[in-house]
Design a protein around this nucleic acid. Structure first.
Lengths: 206, 206
DNA sequence: CTACACCCATGACCTGGTTTAAGAAAGAGC
DNA sequence: GCTCTTTCTTAAACCAGGTCATGGGTGTAG
């Protein structure tokens, strides 16, 4: 049972309603559908939202906190594909849409409150309000573009360039994440990230 | 003017109609919409379907031939994100959907026939037949998953592992592409790919 | 105050992949 | 048939980044 009761529920959905309104304004019945279909859920730090091998059942919108989507390879190395903070979405979309076992994990880097919708409720939402078909197409497009940029970066940039671009794109995350997490996102070892930072600090100081 | 005249047009659309039917069966009026909205186009080898700096105007379905989607980095190195052959789709979806300048190029590795739809015709198609909203969401999902797999690979596999997995996933492409193209897809130099092949041949022979 | 855990930095050495260069092989144009 | 361009291979020097080991800093629980 979620630790957040029904009286606070409408208040909790507000950030999500705002988020949708920014994309395409919703009418009253659509807002009610959102309230009915999305349920708040709290994750304590280190709790899993998805474990590999399971089918991803939820599409989560972050109200407060931070989750990460990552893969653990055969050698036990962590590779973070995505951080999600306030007003962003997270899910293994492949597993979620195809109803197949996920190869990824999602867990909480901080205590985090999400609004989540199940696969079947989302389908139902599409049927009852086709506007959401379009809204979620746009969300999918945004995720797609983000991924495309990352592939471009992984191909053609050095770790230092990727770190610089991380600093520009997510300045608010720098002090919120440990360097272990950032390194796993950049695709390097923490040791090497440390050296990069040393190099940059030296160049900046003179 | 496309070198393919109207009498052959219905015949040309057949592979696309088959493709849609496999996802979700179409009715007569939807088939007619497909015929009206998608136009055949021929690319000779080396011709561009998209040049970086332009907004991507088309979503292309390959009837025959092979296109590649790639990026040229600051040092002039080619990075191929996607090959598209018969019955597959290609486009810079970011540029296409957001109407922003593309950072990618698409060109023909062989003489290629595509069926293409413009952005505005696709929007019109969504309005006239919402079934396509769903069909293209599925297509987007498939592309998304493919990208996700590639990110996973770029992160955690060596070039040799990536080559082996390329062989398994696209065995039909091996003899159709030069090693320069395959290397640009794997993200290594042709020289190093050659070494990988040498190594594998040696191991296989004993 | 101490002990333990975790995070970050640094250095010595190792490896996967690049660079450069050179030559062999195979088409494609004439 | 020959030349020209492109494709593939091989090898040596080099570099980005990984591995392993060490030590210091900073909580935080007892």
């Amino acid at each position: 049972m979620s630790p957040i009761d029904n009286t606070t529920k409408t208040a909790t959905s507000q950030p999500l309603l705002d988020h949708f309104n920014k994309l395409i304004p919703l009418n009253q019945s659509e807002r009610e559908l959102v309230n009915a279909k999305f349920h708040p859920h709290l994750f304590l730090k280190k709790q899993f939202a998805l474990q590999h091998g399971d089918v991803c059942q939820y599409f989560d919108f972050i109200v407060r906190g931070c989750l990460r989507l990552y893969k653990v390879d055969e050698k036990g190395v962590y590779h973070i594909l995505q951080f999600a903070t306030e007003n962003h979405w997270i899910s293994d979309l492949s597993s979620f849409h195809k109803r197949t076992k996920s190869g990824f994990d999602i867990d909480a880097l901080e205590d985090t409150v999400v609004l989540r919708i199940t696969y079947h409720d989302l389908i139902d939402l599409y049927v009852k309000a086709p506007k959401f078909d379009r809204i979620f197409r746009v969300l999918l497009e945004n995720h797609f573009m983000q991924q495309q940029d990352r592939i471009g970066q992984l191909f053609s940039s050095t770790a230092e360039e990727r770190y610089q671009s991380f600093l520009e794109t997510y300045p608010h995350l720098l002090n919120r994440l440990s360097q272990v997490q950032i390194a796993a996102y950049l695709g390097v070892t923490p040791e090497f990230l440390s050296r990069i930072r040393g190099r940059i600090a030296k160049n900046d100081s003179r």
